[in-house]
């Protein structure tokens, strides 16, 4: 998970070149409980950092997922449509949500690294 950055809303973004892959953290999936549906953004959509990007529905409730950085959606994880529980099983792996072409990679500097996020989560418990 080195190079992965986290938001205070529990999204993660892992950057390869100028493309970032976005998902939700293990803590987030644990808090949400069983995921039954994920609404992903359309490919080509422009996301603003902090703007609404996706929606996760658990048995109990719907939760919004925000873009950790600005950019254009280049790919979405279609497999979540038939297997939303992948988000619970593999939040940092096969349970990724979408990829964006970063419009301002410097935005990532404000996010937490893994160690900082870990202590942030510990502070919540």
């Amino acid at each position: 998970m080195s190079g992965t950055k986290f938001t205070e809303d529990h999204e993660w973004i892992s950057v390869d070149g100028d493309v970032g892959t976005v998902g939700i953290s293990d803590y987030a999936q644990e808090q949400l409980g069983d995921v039954v549906f994920v609404e992903l953004p359309e490919v080509g959509r422009q996301l603003e950092k902090g703007g609404e990007a996706a929606v996760v529905e658990s048995v109990k409730a719907a939760s919004e997922i925000y873009a950790p950085a600005s950019g254009e959606v280049t790919e979405i994880n279609d497999s979540l449509e038939d297997a939303p529980a992948t988000v619970n099983q593999s939040p940092f792996g096969d349970g990724w949500f979408f990829k964006i072409k970063l419009s301002d990679p410097d935005e990532l500097d404000a996010l937490m690294d893994e160690a900082a996020y870990k202590s942030f989560v510990e502070g919540l418990e």
Partner: peptide, 12 residues
């Protein structure tokens, strides 16, 4: 208790 470690789906 809204759920136990089993989770809502498995409890159901």
């Amino acid at each position: 208790p809204v759920q136990y470690p089993l989770g809502i789906m498995a409890e159901h």
